[in-house]
């Protein structure tokens, strides 16, 4: 499978009145065509920063280094015009909440305006037909009615589904999702995730999903990265990371899931202002916190099947190939 997105050594430092905020401390990952890459971590870990960068939104106070290669273009080097051409058409965005729907426009208008701009379709009839087609694909019972509805006329779950329709209507190559489907009841969430899976399989769409909800990761992500304080601590196939977590942070996250008793991890993340060589999980780590010596990680341990762990206690089982 071809690489669609390749992020290399991405670092983001925000300049703030409190000092240098290390939001991302050099992360790397690849997303292949048709693959869903999940990034999980608690709030403040840097997830939104990743999404914003992938969408080409750069804060004025952000110092950025690294590479974000999308289909041969380095997104960090593109000028505004070329970047803009990618949005909607090549790179789509699935927002978190239904506050992303304009309250005064119908669902139909949201879809048709997107189609019109990105696919250069002019005829109203064709636009409407396409919109109804995508609403049908999202299994609305009455697509025509949804087409003519304003957001306030639909239930929360239906609006979430409408967001999916809008985000996917041009079938972009890559969809970025920042905390999608959080705070929904599990039934609704499951059905939406199922729909996403079907849609992306049908059109071979790649996705990057960023979330603090391991349920979402477990259900639809092919690969997963666990992010802690701006760095990846564990990456690999989702089933490996979730079923055989090796990093103590990943293990604590899994223990904190509702079905595992919701056992919280002791302590707090040191925060993005923390600037110190060495494992930033050490103060909370069951083994590391007992030792005085700093745990400094130079390279991740590879435990096979592209499963990497950034922890000194995990022994290399394979020679680490060039990750990238």
């Amino acid at each position: 499978m071809k690489k669609l997105l390749s992020v290399k050594k991405l670092k983001v430092v925000y300049d703030s009145s409190a000092g240098k905020v290390h939001a991302l401390r050099g992360i790397s990952f690849n997303v292949k065509k048709g693959e869903i890459f999940g990034i999980a971590g608690e709030s403040g870990a840097g997830k939104t920063t990743i999404c914003r960068l992938l969408m080409g939104f750069m804060e004025k106070n952000a110092g950025i280094s690294g590479q974000v290669d999308f289909n041969g273009d380095d997104l960090l080097k593109l000028n505004y015009k070329d970047l803009y051409r990618l949005y909607g058409r090549k790179i789509g965005f699935l927002p978190q909440s239904i506050a992303s729907l304009n309250p005064l426009l119908t669902i139909g208008t949201h879809i048709t305006e997107t189609l019109k701009k990105n696919l250069k379709i002019k005829k109203k009839k064709i636009l409407k037909k396409k919109a109804i087609y995508i609403l049908d694909a999202l299994e609305f019972s009455d697509s025509r009615q949804v087409y003519n509805s304003f957001p306030y006329q639909l239930s929360g779950g239906m609006n979430q589904r409408a967001l999916l329709a809008i985000a996917f209507c041009c079938f972009p190559d890559l969809v970025i999702a920042d905390e999608p489907f959080t705070g929904l009841d599990p039934d609704v969430q499951n059905r939406l995730l199922e729909t996403v899976r079907i849609l992306k399989d049908k059109k071979n769409i790649s996705m990057v999903i960023v979330t603090h909800d391991l349920k979402v990761i477990e259900k639809i992500c092919d690969k997963t990265a666990i992010i802690y304080n701006g760095s990846f601590v564990e990456t690999g196939e989702t089933k490996d990371v979730i079923k055989t977590p090796l990093h103590p942070y990943t293990q604590s996250l899994i223990k904190a899931m509702p079905e595992n008793g919701m056992i919280p991890t002791w302590g707090f993340a040191p925060g993005a202002l923390y600037d110190d060589a060495g494992c930033s999980f050490q103060p909370r780590c069951p083994t590391g916190s007992k030792e005085k010596k700093k745990h400094i990680i130079n390279s991740p341990a590879s435990v096979g099947n592209n499963h990497y762990v950034w922890c000194l206690n995990v022994k290399n089982q394979e020679s680490v190939k060039d990750l990238l």
Binding site: G88, S100, E113, N118, I166
Partner: peptide, 22 residues
């Protein structure tokens, strides 16, 4: 600054469309 305008930008809509419709 609202989320729906941010989403409109993310969908590649033109500035004029965003200003004079949304």
């Amino acid at each position: 600054e609202s989320e729906y305008v941010q989403f409109a930008f993310a969908r590649g809509l033109s500035m004029n469309r965003i200003l004079f419709v949304h």
